[in-house]
């Protein structure tokens, strides 16, 4: 398929798929807690409502950072689905997150600060593993380009089982789910209020939601990459991974940031680096 067409499909379909995934997430979570749960379109209702609310700000400039966060979140996925260099994708992903953090710092409120600081810690935690994932994929396919990795004839996960597990670990952080929902937990009212999103309201909060939709589609796309030689398996596993993340979210309590950082690095060192070490020894 022409990369431009792929890009166009991504730009249009990702918010729809992402929003449905978010709705599905809330629905499944509710069912796991033996509740009925909201309708599957709930995230869209939420965003529609937020669009019409008053936009309360501490400083007007905080909203521009969030605009760039959304823009770069879209750009990250655009690069990925367009088949660009995986390292560039990671760079854009980090930059997007940095803009989110800057926006929260700009708002200068204690809760927003705690959220921003924790978001930075989370970035430190997942960044090494994300890089190792790209390196692992390069070692198998001899290319950093996403379209070449995707068209590689073998199942990447067979050569990269450790990296796949490590990547799942970072996904849990990246989706901001329990036990790693340090920066903007929906359940830590006393401790965080809403963490990094505390000072955003109205249209800006809607932008954050939409950025998350784009992000989750991109991240699941990356999971697909491990199984790209059998597309049906890839899609099935991506959805399964999403359900797994929801299950973990509901089963675990929130961890301290020290534990998050240590465990993420241990996982990156053992599963990620170990896998790469074995690959290079077998060669």
């Amino acid at each position: 398929m022409n990369p431009w067409i792929r890009l166009l499909i991504y730009l249009v379909a990702a918010p729809i798929v992402g929003g449905l995934l978010a709705g599905w997430d809330r629905r499944i979570s509710a069912r796991m807690q033996s509740r009925q749960g909201p309708p599957i379109f709930q995230p869209f209702y939420d965003v529609l409502k937020l669009m019409q609310k008053e936009n309360v700000v501490v400083r007007r400039s905080q909203n521009y950072y969030i605009f760039f966060f959304l823009l770069l979140a879209i750009f990250t996925g655009g690069l990925f689905f367009g088949g660009a260099d995986l390292l560039l994708v990671i760079f854009a992903l980090t930059l997007a997150a940095i803009f989110f953090v800057l926006g929260a710092y700009k708002a200068s409120s204690p809760y927003s600060f705690i959220g921003a600081e924790r978001e930075l810690i989370q970035m430190m935690a997942y960044e090494p593993m994300v890089l190792l994932t790209a390196i692992g994929m390069y070692m198998v396919t001899k290319s950093f380009a996403v379209n070449e990795i995707a068209s590689h004839p073998t199942l990447l996960v067979l050569a990269l089982p450790g990296i796949f597990l490590g990547f799942l670990f970072t996904l849990e952080i990246k989706f901001r789910k329990s036990p790693f929902d340090l920066s903007c937990s929906h359940h830590a009212h006393q401790e965080l209020v809403s963490g990094i999103t505390t000072e955003f309201s109205g249209r800006t909060l809607a932008m954050i939601e939409i950025a998350h939709w784009y992000e989750s589609v991109f991240l699941l796309g990356w999971v697909y990459l491990f199984f790209a030689s059998i597309p049906a398996l890839g899609i099935a596993v991506s959805l399964l991974v999403f359900v797994l993340i929801i299950l973990v979210d509901n089963v675990f309590a929130r961890l301290k940031w020290q534990t998050v950082l240590k465990s993420a690095w241990v996982v990156a060192a053992v599963l990620g680096f170990g896998n790469i070490l074995i690959l290079s020894l077998l060669r």
Partner: peptide
């Protein structure tokens, strides 16, 4: 679970700005 207002889209936010 008995009443589950989240089925109406209710979220208990804890943040006045939301």
């Amino acid at each position: 679970p008995g009443f589950d207002v989240e089925r109406l889209g209710v979220i208990n936010t804890g943040n006045p700005k939301h």
